[in-house]
Design a protein around this nucleic acid. Structure first.
Length: 504
RNA sequence: UCCUCGAUAGCUCAGCUGGUUAGAGCACAUGACUGUUAAUCAUGGGGUCCCUGGUUCGAGCCCAGGUCGGGGAGCCA
């Protein structure tokens, strides 16, 4: 019997098992919030209706104590799930020690140190449920469309793209690297099966300390024979539409818990704008407007509003600090104001951070040099102008990976495509059509100063029945982060691995 | 690697221009309260002010070096 099924048992006796996520008490009433992994439910122990011993046990429950109970399911509109349980019996498994995560605001450092416990909180629970629904949708979409899941190896003998820093391991006294992408293997598997997708962990040893980087993350990489870049973009669009629609339909409760405004997600049914690199650059530099919005002006407006918000927040903090000094103020009111002040200070720190960053971004957008790759801030700047994911394709070939196909209509460009999520989230997908010409690939490998011998097996794919093909890589955590509108990728994965963080 | 912000009670944070015994809220303990939603109210215990050195009659506060963490650039999903 689980909390998620309570609605089917209205008026009946049920047995539930779980943990106490909160407890409040009055003289003759104990309110215990039970969580069992499937949901949260308020359980009421009424001293006038249960044995004295049961009431006493309920009073002993500390945060996160484990217990089971029997009780009657009662409809109550005030509850999030719509139901509560009137307890008749209660058995304790264990009374928990003092729980470190209090019913209050905590800093990221403390919460990350306590990730093993933080996962129990309702917000983290909801995010993980959504992550699970996304993973399920990904498999459903590909399986229903004749894709075969085939995974790439995690130990690799060579730095596949030669671009990023990799983790080195000792592999029987040889150097092995942890995979940064299954892409090249995906191509080999697509030549065997037609359509495949990989789903596995990926490792990047970059010393990136930002809200969108992890050193270990999960990547989904489909690869399709006989697809060109346009077929690829059609697939990406259908795929993302499917995943987001499933979440909207099946995770309403979870989205409510995390307070996600779903308006932007509902836009997923609209077509995704497809911009060439040239157009994207004009938009970033402010030379071309989008629906009457100009990137530079939007940024300037935002900077002004951030600065105004900083002043307003400072003023409110000062006012509340003055207020709580008033003699004779009730303790509760002081506490209320104090916690408001704490919250405002956190907001202020975030705003000040933005006020330091936006001028840099403005500078970077204004002085963007044609021919360069888009930086993180450029992605942020452009995606804020749209309310759906956008696809940017046809990149200057020099800034993209060696295996991308040169555009047959204009050889300055390579047929890569990046999908940028709206609301400032930036790149969630990178992909493209692959080069089919062996000679061209050899030149590119030499140009990138990569060891030719490590790629001979890959070049074989162009000798034996080379066909047009394309694929893409989706960063699972970045997708979760955008769909949930999280402030940081670290909340999108059970145990995030970042620079300097191996525990828990 | 570079830029930038920070480290004070178990947690979140105050601490003024360097000055006596370092504060608040939450959490915890005890008591009060019959419908609470981070319940509320009263009382109480709780400190290596990140480390090392320096300036000073005097350092949580100033200076130098270090450690750890946040955010951003580069790189990328």
């Amino acid at each position: 019997m689980y909390i998620k099924d309570l609605s089917k048992y209205e008026g009946q006796e049920v047995t539930l098992r779980g943990w106490a996520s909160n407890r409040r008490s009055s003289k003759g009433l104990e309110f215990v919030i039970l969580r069992d992994g499937t949901g949260f439910c308020q359980c009421i122990v009424d001293a006038t209706k249960v044995a004295a011993e049961v009431f006493e046990k309920a009073g002993k429950l500390k945060l996160e104590s484990s217990f089971s109970l029997k009780g009657k399911v009662v409809k109550d509109e005030r509850q999030l799930g719509g139901y509560e349980v009137h307890v008749s019996e209660l058995e304790i498994y264990q009374i928990a020690e003092e729980y470190p995560i209090a019913k209050k605001e905590h800093g990221v450092d403390f919460l990350t140190d306590n990730r093993h416990l933080w996962l129990r909180s309702s917000r983290q629970w909801a995010i993980m449920k959504i992550r699970n629904r996304i993973i399920y949708s990904i498999h459903q979409f590909f399986q229903e469309n004749e894709f075969v899941e085939m995974d790439a190896p995690i130990f690799t003998g060579n730095a596949c793209e030669g671009t990023t820093n990799l983790f080195e391991t000792n592999y029987f006294d040889e150097t092995a690297y942890l995979s940064q992408s299954g892409q090249l293997y995906g191509e080999a598997m697509a030549m065997a099966m037609g359509r495949i997708y990989t789903f596995g962990p990926t490792f990047r040893a970059e010393k990136s300390k930002t809200r969108r980087h992890l050193t270990e993350f999960w990547m989904i990489e489909p690869e399709m024979a006989f697809f060109d870049i346009f077929d690829n973009m059609d697939l990406i669009e259908a795929f993302l539409r499917r995943v987001v629609s499933d979440v909207l339909r099946d995770c309403k409760n979870e989205l409510t818990i995390i307070g996600r405004d779903t308006a932007v997600l509902e836009n997923i049914t609209k077509p995704f704008p497809r911009l060439t690199y040239d157009e994207a650059v004009r938009i970033i530099k402010g030379e071309q407007d989008v629906n009457g919005k100009n990137s530079i002006k939007e940024l300037e407006t935002e900077l002004a509003s951030v600065l105004a918000a900083i002043e307003a927040t400072k003023k409110e903090i000062a006012e509340r600090e003055e207020k709580i000094k008033t003699p004779g103020m009730k303790k509760g009111e002081i506490g209320f104001n104090q916690s408001k002040i704490d919250k405002l200070k956190q907001e202020l720190a975030d705003l000040e951070e933005q006020a330091r960053n936006i001028p840099q971004w403005l500078n970077s957008a204004r002085n963007f040099t044609y021919g360069n790759d888009l930086g993180g801030s450029d992605e942020t700047v452009i995606t804020r102008l749209f309310d759906v994911p956008i696809m940017v394709y046809n990149w200057p070939h020099a800034v993209k990976a060696f295996y991308l196909k040169r555009d047959p209509d204009d050889n300055r460009f390579a047929r890569g495509v990046d999908v940028l999520a709206p609301e400032g989230y930036g790149e969630i997908v990178g992909g493209g059509e692959r080069e089919t010409n062996e000679q061209m690939l050899r030149e590119k490998i030499t140009e990138h100063e990569l060891p030719m011998e490590a790629f001979e097996w890959y070049l074989d794919l162009r000798k034996y029945g080379s066909v047009p093909h394309a694929g893409f890589g989706l960063g699972l955590e970045r997708l979760v982060t955008w769909i949930c509108k999280l402030p940081h990728v670290r909340e999108s994965i059970p145990f995030p691995r970042m620079m300097g963080r191996l525990l828990p």
